[in-house]
Every structure is written in structure tokens, then in C-alpha cells.
Amino acid sequence: MLEAFLRYEFLQNAFYSGMLIGLLAPMLGVFLVVRRLALIADALSHITLSGIAASLLLAKHVAFFQGLNPLYLGLVFSVGGSLLIEQLRSAYKYYKEIAIPIILSGGIGLGVVFISLADGFNNDLFNYLFGSVIAVSRSDLWTISIITVVVLMVLLLFYKELFFLSFDEEQAIVSGINRKLVNFIFIIMVALVIAASMRIVGILLVSALMTLPVAAAMRLAKGFKQMFFYSIVFGEVAVVTGLITSFYLDLAPGGMIVMIAVLILLLVIALESAFKKYREFGKIQPSK
């Protein structure tokens, strides 16, 4: 089945891009979940939608944007939104979480305005909203590959700092870690991955791929590194299974990927519950 799926170039683009996204999204999702910042993914995905809608609008009126991949302007908006979140988190020192709904609301509003000016939804915009197997081009694959290399290099360089800040931010600051710089770099990485993921998963569903595999991994992992490993495994299984299923059933890949991730989470919870009951039953000594 997989060989038949990879027979065409556009399917190869989708498959390899999905594999990269299945690696990146859960990896960053681990830090987002641990730091209780999972909703940042939703906020940045909506501001990315504004960038995509703006690019499609400009393509109707400006010659330069007619041949430009909308992904690039989406990346610009996503990174800009991430920087605004950090600025707002600094401005609202005691209410940092308010930065997320501000950007989320602004992203939705701006996106709706651009979509209205572009005379409503079209097929391209639907592909970005819910993902599409046939919409992933070779240039998208190269863009995602470059983002993957950059994110992996940054994670290797700043893993200890991110780990420290995730579990004990005050002690990390006392130890000399530049919190603002590390947070700045981290949220830009999140923005890049979200923008890169929208072709496969879709803007409205990308945050699920960053949180659901992590939620399943948390039920099994006995340490932070194990949680990393399980999150990536669950993410890759969800992406590959979702892509193949969506192609053969002619369904939106984003929805199938998310539903597979939900099924994995439910299965893990059910197995964990059954295992606990089995252990408790084993501890019960039969009465003499």
C-alpha cells in the first residue's frame, strides 16, 4: 500500500513533508505542554491564516505575489505574531496568559477581513485550512526540510536551557540563563513549525498535532526523554496513517491525522487504565 501511495511525486512530497512535521510538531509540543503554553499554537496558527489570506489577496492585485508561494508570507506573519506574543507577555508581567487570546483574536479578525476582501473562500484557502495531499509542492518540501534542519540545530544548542526554563524558570534565571533570548528563539521555532505544518495538517488543526501526541506520551513516559521519544512515535504514526487513509478515502488529511492522534490517545488511556486494574487485582490476596 505504501509503495502505491508513493508512486507519484505529489504523494512523495506530502509523505516526506508529513514525516518531517510528525517529528518537529511533537518535539516542540513537549516544551509547550510542559510550560503550559499549548494555546500559543492556536494563536500562531490563526495569525498564519491572516498571512495566507493576505498573500492570496495580494496575488489578485500585485504582480509580484502572483507567483509567490503563500507559505512565505504565512511564515512572516507567524514569526511576527510570535514576537508580538513575547512583547505582550513582557507588558502584562502578572497576566502573561492574556497575550495568547489577544493574538488569537487579532489573527482571526485580520484573517476574516483579508478573506472578505479576497471575495471569500476559494480552493487554495480550504487546502490551507484543512490540509491537502495534492497541494504539497516540491518547494514546500524544501522549505519544510530547511526549517527542520534549523529547528533541530537550535534544539541541540539550547536543549538544556529550554529544559531548565520549562521546569524551574526562577532557578534558571538565577543560574544565569537569558530567559528572554531563549524564549524569543523558542517561540520563533514554534512559529516556523506551525507555518510549515499547515499544508499537511491545516491551519485549524496544527495545534492538535503539537499537543495530542504529547498528551498520549505523558501517560506512558517515566521521564522527559521518554516523553520526547513517545511523542515523536505517536506523531509519526498519526501523520503517516492519516495521510494514507485520507488519500484512499478521499478525505482531508488534517482531519484524519488529528482523528488518528485522538484514537492513539484514547487507546493509551484505556490500556493504562486496564493495566492499573490488572496490577491492583494482582495485589489482592485470595482469602483463606
Rank of each mutant, 00 (worst) to 15 (best):
41 A>D: 03
30 V>T: 12
32 L>C: 07
32 L>D: 01
27 M>Q: 03
42 D>E: 09
31 F>S: 03
41 A>E: 00
32 L>H: 00
37 L>C: 02
36 R>C: 07
44 L>F: 05
35 R>A: 08
21 I>S: 12
33 V>I: 12
41 A>Y: 06
16 Y>K: 07
32 L>P: 00
19 M>S: 09
22 G>Y: 12
42 D>L: 10
21 I>Q: 11
23 L>C: 13
37 L>Y: 00
38 A>R: 01
37 L>Q: 03
15 F>S: 09
14 A>C: 10
24 L>C: 12
28 L>S: 06
29 G>L: 12
37 L>M: 07
40 I>H: 01
43 A>G: 15
19 M>F: 15
15 F>G: 08
25 A>P: 11
19 M>P: 06
33 V>T: 09
27 M>E: 01
37 L>K: 00
23 L>T: 14
24 L>S: 12
20 L>A: 12
42 D>V: 10
28 L>W: 01
16 Y>W: 14
34 V>M: 13
16 Y>E: 04
29 G>H: 12
40 I>C: 04
23 L>D: 14
35 R>T: 08
42 D>H: 11
38 A>M: 06
25 A>V: 15
21 I>T: 13
43 A>C: 11
17 S>P: 07
19 M>K: 02
22 G>M: 12
29 G>T: 11
18 G>P: 02
22 G>A: 15
19 M>W: 05
21 I>R: 10
15 F>H: 07
44 L>W: 01
34 V>Y: 11
40 I>L: 13
36 R>T: 09
35 R>S: 12
15 F>V: 08
34 V>H: 14
26 P>Y: 11
32 L>E: 02
22 G>W: 06
21 I>F: 15
23 L>M: 15
21 I>Y: 11
43 A>T: 09
28 L>G: 11
24 L>Y: 09
17 S>H: 00
33 V>E: 03
35 R>H: 04
40 I>T: 10
43 A>W: 00
42 D>N: 12
20 L>T: 06
36 R>F: 03
14 A>I: 04
22 G>H: 08
36 R>H: 10
38 A>F: 05
31 F>E: 00
29 G>Y: 09
18 G>Y: 07
20 L>Y: 01
33 V>C: 09
24 L>I: 11
40 I>P: 02
21 I>W: 11
33 V>Y: 08
36 R>Q: 12
26 P>H: 13
25 A>G: 14
42 D>Y: 05
29 G>V: 10
44 L>S: 09
23 L>A: 14
16 Y>P: 08
33 V>H: 05
43 A>N: 05
30 V>L: 14
14 A>P: 10
22 G>T: 10
24 L>H: 10
26 P>E: 13
37 L>E: 03
32 L>A: 09
28 L>T: 00
36 R>L: 04
14 A>E: 06
38 A>E: 11
30 V>M: 12
17 S>D: 05
28 L>V: 06
17 S>E: 00
25 A>I: 08
39 L>V: 06
24 L>P: 11
44 L>C: 08
30 V>N: 12
34 V>R: 15
22 G>F: 13
24 L>V: 11
15 F>A: 09
19 M>Q: 07
33 V>F: 10
24 L>D: 09
16 Y>L: 13
38 A>N: 06
34 V>D: 13
17 S>N: 02
34 V>L: 15
39 L>C: 01
43 A>K: 02
15 F>E: 07
35 R>Q: 07
39 L>P: 00
37 L>V: 00
16 Y>F: 15
35 R>M: 03
40 I>K: 00
41 A>H: 00
24 L>W: 05
